[in-house]
Design a protein around this nucleic acid. Structure first.
Lengths: 221, 221
DNA sequence: TTGCTCCTCACGTCACGTGAGGTGGC
DNA sequence: TTGCTCCTCACGTCACGTGAGGTGGC
């Protein structure tokens, strides 16, 4: 009943004459119109589209074809979402990381900081870097020198920082030694290499403490 | 950007600290949160559902299962709509009548009044009556006595009305003679036989003129 | 007199989109 | 001084849902 009044308001349905008491008096013509409107809504047309068609009983061929194409696209999209959902549900991977990294992360139980870093990381690098890191995450997280880095106090002295950097370099070196075409790991970054490097840099500066940032600087310079 | 502000407004995302000029200063934690929100929205969750999950990175298994079931239902519904659309498009049937009647009506070119009558009729009777009428519509609409009925003036005199009724009865009789179980044609009316009879009666009284209504009355009494 | 139906405002829903009008940074 | 970015209201979107408050019919 509220829907009918709404159709009056937007001009889709003529208001019928009133009886003496003000009640609306609908006839079959109104009913036919309402049935048509309801039918078209059921097919997925908007009220605006129905208004465009007018109240003639023409065959809205063009509108229906457009609608059909939209439906096909919607169905496809929803089916892709379902595939994603099935993957997430069956593998119990978290929702904020792509599957390959998600699985690896679920197994190794990273710190909250490292997790946050990888969430950002996964957004800006391409599939190759993702795969490479996913495969090495287990060895990475179990390494004592990594734990040491994670626990480095913000006020660690210079010697500690330098020494840690010197021990980290060969470890990372070895870890990624067998990655093919290693210099171009970022080449397939979806938003470009400079963007990716910048984002990673910003993330590091936001997530880690000054001593840790200094260690990273010493490693890469 | 407006979306971000909206998340602030509904409490999904904490507002970051401001810089001296009032600009918001986002950190990686905010980014991670936003990415998670966007991801869940992409999967089809509402903001309210996301709020219920909290900002912990727990695995929203239950919510995802519910969502998946809803998606399955939605996809099925849309596919049924597409089947309907394909039928309508391929057979060029009108949208306000069921297919079997629609096809028949498209061929015989009824008067607007008769069309309106059949739209109502199709809503209240069951498939059996629909099929029976669809099959006989061609013969019905070509019959001279039907044309005569449709053109009957509102002020036709008594003798004309009585005579027309007497000629209509055998025609209708013959037309439906070979319908099996003819007395129960309305037995499968979706909203019940009394409802269907009442609706048909009201439609006749609204659509036809007094003389025509009187003829119908004489036929059935 | 008592329920019941019908009426007209008018605000709420959902996830933002879109100006309006103002201010800081370069 | 001139664009450009960022800010905060605040109304609009879409198809109705949902009371609020009042009135006629039996």
């Amino acid at each position: 009943v509220r829907a009918i009044r709404h159709y009056h308001e937007v001009g889709l349905l003529a208001e019928p004459e009133r009886r003496a008491n003000g009640y609306k008096s609908y006839g079959v013509a109104h009913l036919v119109r309402v049935l048509r409107i309801k039918r078209l809504i059921g097919l997925g047309l908007s009220l605006a589209q129905i208004a465009e068609l007018g109240d003639a009983d023409e065959h809205p061929e063009e509108a229906l074809r457009v609608l059909d194409a939209e439906l096909a696209a919607t169905i496809e999209r929803l089916q892709r979402v379902r595939v994603e959902l099935a993957l997430i549900l069956s593998q119990a991977t978290p929702t904020d990381l792509p599957p390959q990294l998600g699985r690896a992360v679920a197994e190794v139980d990273l710190s909250a900081t490292d997790r946050a870093f990888f969430v950002v990381f996964a957004q800006v690098v391409g599939p190759r870097a993702l795969d490479a890191y996913a495969e090495r995450l287990r060895a990475y997280s179990r390494e004592p020198v990594i734990t040491e880095f994670n626990r480095l106090p913000a006020d660690a002295d210079e010697q500690t920082r330098q020494e840690l950097a010197e021990r980290l370099v060969p470890f990372i070196e070895k870890l990624f030694a067998d990655v093919p075409d290693r210099q171009n790991l970022l080449a397939d970054a979806p938003r470009g290499v400079p963007f990716a490097l910048n984002a990673i840099n910003l993330a590091i500066h936001d997530l880690y403490n000054p001593a840790q940032i200094d260690v990273v600087r010493r490693m890469t310079s």
